[in-house]
Amino acid sequence: MTKDIPVEVAVDASDITRFAPHTHPLWWGILAAVAIEAAVVANLLTSYFYLWARTDAWPPEGVEPPPLLWPTLILVVLPLSSVTMWWAGKGSDAGRMRQLALGVSASVLLACVAIGFRSIQIAQFDILWSDHAYGSILWAITGFHYTHVVSAIVGTAAVAILAWMGYFTPERQLGVVVDTLYWYFVAGVYLPIYLVLYWAPRLL
């Protein structure tokens, strides 16, 4: 029986840290969630090209590819919000909690601007999801990313509230670290979406 064998304590955990925001299992969990989302995006973009390959005209006759202005502005705003997110994390690592609160709040505001631009741009689509498969996939990918920006906004808003309440410390900041990781993904995944939806139909 195992329990009858004499025991030796080989690892003493009493002095090992209980806070490790940058190597915490949740960091890995968010990374896995990002992998799932990335797989969804890959499926959607592949479907876009598959539908394209099986159609004569893409976009269909009489439909223009979506205008470039607003999507390109979003391509500026979202990375900018990632910079403020990164700056906020620097602050909380160094114990400057005011910088953290300012940084995450700025990111939320910038992402709200991005959502505003996105809404204007959606209103400009000259095709409905029910008109043609092109419209369906265009709206689906756009809606998918829209939902992600909104969920990053509401999640980060919760982090911002906690930051203004003074909850976070340089050790106790797991929420900030994982929220930032997710934020980078939402901002970063816009690039392939942007290239496929707005440039591919013009260039290919």
Binding site: P6, V9, V11, D12
Partner: peptide, 11 residues
């Protein structure tokens, strides 16, 4: 059992 001891985490 071969080693005659069982190692564990303490603390």
């Amino acid at each position: 059992p071969e080693r005659g001891k069982r190692t564990v985490v303490g603390g």
